[in-house]
Design a protein around this nucleic acid. Structure first.
Lengths: 106, 106
DNA sequence: ATAATAGTCAACCAAATAGTTGAGTAATTA
DNA sequence: TAATTACTCAACTATTTGGTTGACTATTAT
């Protein structure tokens, strides 16, 4: 529950989603990561903190730099949660019936 | 962008996810919807507001009651965003390589 | 007509978020 | 050794969030 909270919260901010996108291209030291954003490095550090609290980013101290890398694992849970509702957008009209039938089987 | 912000924000709260889950079983008037939660109806109304701002819930005035129903459509975008990173949790070791190859093709 | 129900609205509060700045530390480079 | 780089930390600010209560409106039921 708390885990999903943290994951969705982390992804609810465009800056943080941009950080995730950049880390998908490979790990980055904090300073490099902060460069393209028009905000202080401290602010970026805080965003990274939210991401690492959610387990989406792993920060590793290496000399004087902090290397950030993506760990997408928590996204799987978020996706599984969403997947549960897939029928509702896939076939809007039949969705409720499908859902109830599925529930009945459980 | 803003749309994704709203969707992820709406889903970042356990109470709101519970509301979504209940509405999956069928539409509900606000009062019924609020019953199981240990908070005021006003508080629930506010959560519903966040959900409807995100387009996840449609509120329809009918007499003195407000009927809430699920619209899962915005979840699709959220899921598509997550799907982009699927390779990263599906095969942790090959993930970066796969991603970069995919990017190269675009 | 009266009472009960369903909901809104405004005001308030505490805590969290998203940012800033300035000072300090630790590691690297010159 | 001195300067620069990478970053942390504390303090402050403004805004948002998640909740409360009390008073009000509108609809329905008796």
């Amino acid at each position: 529950m708390q885990r999903l909270d943290n994951t969705f919260t982390a992804l609810s901010d465009a800056t943080r989603r941009a950080i995730v996108a950049r880390l998908a291209d490979g790990e980055q030291p904090l300073s490099k990561l902060a460069e393209p954003f028009s905000m202080s490095q401290t602010a970026v550090t805080k965003h990274v903190r939210v991401l690492s609290d959610a387990g989406l980013v792993i920060v590793e101290k290496r000399g004087r730099t902090r290397h950030c890398k993506l760990d997408a694992a928590p996204m799987k849970e978020a996706m599984d949660w969403l997947k549960y509702y897939e029928a509702f957008w896939a076939d809007k009209f039949a969705s409720l019936a499908k859902h109830l039938e599925k529930k009945k089987k459980q």
